[in-house]
Every structure is written in C-alpha cells, then in structure tokens.
C-alpha cells in the first residue's frame, strides 16, 4: 500500500511533518525583509537624543506595533532555523529533544520579554 503524495506531505511521511515548517520558514523570511529593514531605520532615528529621545521615539504606537511584529516574526523564524540546525547536527535523541525544547522556550521567552518591554514604553 503506497500512500498518495498528498498523504505524505500532510504529515504521514517518515518525518510525520514538514510542509508546515517549510512554508512557515519562507513566509517569515519574506516578512522579515521589510520588517527588519524598516526596524533598522527606526532604530537609527531612535538613537538620537539619548534615553529620553529613545523612549519618546520608540514609545510611539506605530513604532511599538512595528517592533512588536518584527520581534514575533524574527523569533519565530529564528526558532524554525535553529530547529533545522539542531535536527541536522545533533544526533543523540535526548540532547536533540532537550535542545529543541530549549530553543522554542527561549524564542517564546524572548518574544514575551520584548513585547512586555515595548508595551511598557507606550
């Protein structure tokens, strides 16, 4: 009994998953291009005027929103990319499980800390 191609890409193949990771990695990659480019410009503008200037500039609602979106997308993309690196180079089952858990935990933690910081600047 051979499975249909769709059956395999829908998660019934040897890795039990894959298409979602592949799609998400590329969607976040495309989104990262404008998100990070504009974020760098905003950071350049925010860097003038010391602490007061940075708080006033980054605390603007649209800047907070842009940074928040960038952070979430970048953390997600980083977690997906690090996952592939771990899957490729770490062969021990336990170490792989622990590292994958750690990467996801740190990505979520980073996003939450960044979002909390941004919201407090509003």
């Amino acid at each position: 009994m051979s499975r249909s191609f769709e059956g395999r890409v829908r998660g019934l193949g040897t890795a039990h998953e894959g298409l979602h990771h592949w799609t998400a990695q590329r969607l976040t990659a495309v989104a990262n291009i404008p998100l990070i480019a504009v974020s760098l410009l905003l950071l350049c503008k925010a860097s003038k005027g010391g602490y007061e200037g940075a708080v006033a500039y980054i605390g603007q609602p649209l800047v907070v929103a842009w940074f928040a979106l960038t952070l979430v997308v970048a953390c997600y993309h980083a977690a997906l990319g690090l996952q592939v690196v771990i899957e490729d180079y770490v062969s021990g089952k336990g170490a792989k499980f622990a590292l994958l858990f750690l990467v996801r935990f740190l990505a979520a933690l980073g996003a939450v800390v960044g979002l909390a910081s941004l919201i407090s600047l509003l």
């Binding site: 940075a54 740190l106 600047l121």
Partner: peptide
C-alpha cells in the same frame, strides 16, 4: 542565521534595558 539569533537576543536585552 545562528549568529543573528544571538543578535536578536541582544536586541531584546537592549529593549528591556530601555524599558527598565
């Protein structure tokens, strides 16, 4: 990509410092 993940951590630390 791995190095930029570290940079992302530094950026979040910088943001948290700004908020602190």
């Amino acid at each position: 990509g791995v190095a930029l993940s570290g940079v992302l951590v530094l950026f979040i630390v910088w943001l948290a410092a700004l908020a602190s």
